[in-house]
Design a binder for these strands. Structure first.
Length: 535
DNA sequence: TTAGGGTTTG
């Protein structure tokens, strides 16, 4: 006789709304963090953390959580995070209900952002998490977005003259903790207001001197005080941080704003260390990748050749790539964190010689509004299949130009026609018509053909993260041979590689390449078969 | 046991 395998014991947890908790009960609750303080040592034997939860029942519940181990306290990074508490004991303190962690207490924490993954932060080795839980988290996020007033989660570029306090997600670029208690941080955006810089003559900054120098103008100095000193001293350069309740002080008569993290824990003042793969860290990384020309600060770059298609070459860890002297060739496997541009129109602009306007290709009609006609259209039919084709020949400034120096927009033409036109005209820009607008083709088509040179792609930035050793790398190059977003990559050029951060990450998207990719995708030609498979 | 949110004064 064979018995069916025992299914794991499953308890059906009941979660009650915050307005139904009563003194003396031990409850399971979900809630959105309205306020919290980072755990600090108590005068007893434990760490403790205080927080306030809210939920759509319109109640709020203050909680005090103790633990000898930081891991067992909820890992909250910002107001709006969602928590699930099991076995929270409800008691009364000064007439208010209060939650404390009783025996068997456990916590899951979720990022509050709508678009973040529903992966709990927890030290629990096993926990139950069902589709119902997932649904609750999503609902609470939506509710919080509409109903919860979070503190200013501005970026450096958003700081205004009247901004007084700020919660900042940033990366630690450097620190000085022997004389001052100084954190030099950046978030990938440029502060528009003048920020006070600490005079560091005679002090030694802990950090990469080249990076500090190349990011001058983007980084800001934050002075920290008193109880934050020990935290500041233990921070690793390169770590992602959330600085809670920075005071932006504008001394009277001064135009220069000072950034202070004062002593005490009022309003949750303190420092959180974020994992490099947290939603907020990634946001920080993205902002940095969007900096004009600043994706790869000088001094953090080395130059190597990266191969992803040659399967007979063993894959090399990004950390090893960075530690070796160029020129070398490697194959890598890594997680794609970010890419730019999202559309060709972000990189290619057309110039109208008639009115001297610059047009973004996706907005070609705006050029058509200029007083003088800026192109002349010639149309013809292909035979098989029968199809209307057009060449919009861009007119020069009154002067007659030889065809080989003319630029044309080729609409609806075949590959054969493109070849033919490219032999006759100086520049051929393949376009198509969508909703009566001329737009550029996608990345599978060259954006411009100059004689024998078929230019695919544009200045292209790819940001990778690798689990081990958890290094983030940005690739940037001209004429990147990529045909489609979200398809397979064939990297076989020289890229600038910069060490941008450290810390292990979790995968959202993996780019895998293989021999088939190499067969299907060749550089500079037309792909024989276009794979629509997403990765 | 501990602490129990509500701005430094550099």
């Amino acid at each position: 006789l064979q018995l069916p395998p025992l299914s794991p014991l499953r308890l059906d947890y009941v979660y009650i709304p915050l307005n139904e908790v009563k003194e003396g009960l031990t409850v399971n609750v979900y809630g959105v963090v309205k306020f919290f303080k980072q755990p600090v040592p108590s005068k007893g034997t434990d760490f403790y953390s205080t927080l306030t939860l809210v939920d759509p029942s319109a109640a709020r519940l203050h909680c005090v959580l103790f633990s000898g181990s930081l891991d067992l306290l909820p890992q909250i990074y910002k107001v709006g995070d969602v928590v699930r508490f099991h076995r929270l004991k409800i008691q009364c303190y000064e007439g208010d209900l209060q939650g404390v962690n009783g025996p068997g207490f456990s916590a899951l924490t979720f990022d509050g952002a709508l678009e973040a993954g529903v992966t709990p932060r927890t030290a629990s080795k096993s926990y139950q998490f069902t589709s119902t839980d997932r649904k609750i988290v999503r609902e609470l996020r939506s509710w919080a977005k509409a109903n919860l007033l979070a503190p200013d989660t501005l970026r450096l570029k958003d700081i205004q003259q009247n901004t007084k306090y700020l919660d900042l997600t940033c990366q630690l670029l450097a620190k000085e903790t022997d004389g001052y208690l100084l954190l030099q941080v950046w978030d990938g955006t440029k502060c528009q207001r003048p920020i006070w810089q600490v005079n560091l003559d005679g002090y030694k900054l802990d950090g990469d001197a080249n990076a500090i120098e190349s990011l001058r103008g983007l980084s800001v100095d934050v002075l920290v005080y008193d109880n934050h000193a020990s935290t500041a001293s233990s921070l690793q350069v390169g770590a992602y941080l959330r600085l809670h309740n920075i005071h932006l002080k504008l001394p009277e008569g001064s135009e220069v704003t000072e950034l202070h993290l004062h002593g005490g824990t009022s309003y949750g003042r303190g420092v959180s260390v974020l994992p490099a793969d947290s939603h907020d860290s990634k946001r920080c990384i993205k902002a940095r990748a969007a900096l004009p020309g600043g994706i790869c600060p000088e001094g953090w770059c080395v130059c190597v050749t990266v191969l992803t298609a040659h399967q007979h070459i063993a894959a090399t860890a990004l950390g090893a790539v960075l530690s070796q002297e160029p020129p070398c060739k490697y194959r890598i496997r890594a997680q794609l964190m970010d890419f730019q541009p999202r559309g060709l129109h972000q990189s290619v602009k057309l110039h109208c010689p008639a009115c001297q306007a610059w047009g973004v290709p996706d907005l070609l009609p705006s050029l058509a509004l200029c007083p003088a006609p800026w192109y002349q259209t010639v149309t013809w039919h292909s035979l098989s299949p029968e199809k209307l084709m057009a060449a919009h020949i861009v007119l020069a400034n009154g002067e007659e130009e030889a065809p080989e120096s003319k630029a044309i927009l080729a609409e609806g033409v075949t590959v054969r026609e493109l070849h033919r036109l490219s032999r006759r005209f100086g520049s051929v820009i393949p376009v198509c018509r969508r909703s009566e607008q001329l737009t550029l083709m996608d990345c599978s088509v060259p954006f411009v053909i100059e004689g024998r040179k078929w230019h695919y792609g544009v200045f292209f930035i790819l940001t990778f993260l690798q689990y081990d050793p958890g290094i983030l790398v940005t690739f940037a190059d001209w004429d990147f041979p990529l045909y489609k977003y979200n398809t397979k990559l064939h990297l076989c050029s020289t890229f600038h590689i910069g060490r941008m951060s450290q810390g292990a990450g979790e995968s959202d998207i993996w780019i895998r390449t293989g021999v088939r990719d190499r067969a299907e995708w060749s550089v500079g030609g037309w792909p024989k078969a276009q794979s629509k498979r997403r990765v």
